[in-house]
């Protein structure tokens, strides 16, 4: 089975987000980056399917130069090769442009299954995978918690709201977006990291692929959210704070 896993590099979860000079994006200097956590579950699922059914796992990203470390990590964990569609504009591209880039690169090769995380931890639109499926003319299912491949079909457990699930069966080839927690993600071994250096990474520019770079949506302004509620912050030693809080919950809020 030929499996493509789309991965994105995002600012690390603990990084302080600082709005940039013109207020339309965040500053990325002096910030640590990591693989978008939901995508790590998608990669793991791809690796497990390959281990069971054979074939190849290709990690793909549309991102700036720095995103090559995310591909290295995927290769170290066991992906066979990688594709980097490199353009600094991808750091803040909208979902349409990102999906168009991924579709152009993946569309050049035979593919049986495409996996993505369900959303990114930065912009969080949660739609790149589905747009990619539509661009490639593939059926898709989202927020998947289990995949069984057999007889040219994928039988999937799809998460619905409020603890409900549903079985969705799709013909191969298909695209699935993976829910976090579907599996236990492996770590890269030292041997894996060593091997990764010799694995091929194919690089494209957006011009190579002739991608439509007209955005369909644009962030006009980023800002700190306004306080929805008047939060009363309690200060002091741990003991003082505990005393204050319990007294407020008893006599002010009257909830204990």
């Amino acid at each position: 089975m030929k499996i493509f896993v789309c991965v994105k590099q995002v600012m690390s979860r603990d990084a302080a987000v600082r709005v940039d000079g013109d207020g339309s994006w965040v500053r990325d200097d002096g910030v640590a980056f990591e693989t978008n956590e939901p995508d790590t579950f998608a990669l793991e699922e791809g690796l497990r399917l390959r281990e069971k059914h054979g074939g190849e796992v290709v990690a793909v990203t549309a991102g700036p130069a720095r995103a090559s470390s995310t591909l290295r990590e995927a290769l170290a964990k066991g992906a066979d090769r990688a594709i980097h569609i490199q353009d600094n504009r991808f750091a803040r591209a909208d979902t349409h442009i990102t999906a168009a880039a991924l579709a152009a690169a993946i569309g050049r090769e035979p593919h049986d299954l495409i996996l993505t995380g369900l959303q990114s931890d930065d912009a969080g639109y949660g739609q790149t995978g589905v747009i990619l499926a539509e661009m490639l003319g593939l059926p898709h299912a989202t927020i998947i918690m289990k995949i069984e491949a057999s007889g040219g079909q994928f039988r999937c457990k799809r998460e619905l709201e409020a603890g409900w699930f549903q079985t969705v069966t799709l013909p191969q080839p298909a695209l699935l977006t993976i829910q976090s927690g579907i599996n236990k993600v492996r770590y890269a071994t030292l041997m894996g990291i060593k091997k990764a250096r010799r694995k091929p990474v194919r690089r494209y520019s957006s011009a190579d692929l002739g991608i439509d770079t007209q955005p369909r949506q644009e962030v006009q302004r980023l800002y700190q959210p306004q306080q929805g509620k008047q939060t009363e912050f309690l200060e002091g030693s741990a003991r003082e704070v505990a005393d204050q809080l319990l007294s407020k919950l008893r006599f002010e809020a009257r909830v204990i």
Partner: peptide, 23 residues
Amino acid sequence: HTYQVRDLAPKLAASVGTAFVSD
């Protein structure tokens, strides 16, 4: 913005070639 819409609206938007501003 529901789970169903997360599954459906990006496909619809892509098929008409327009934006989907989600959530």
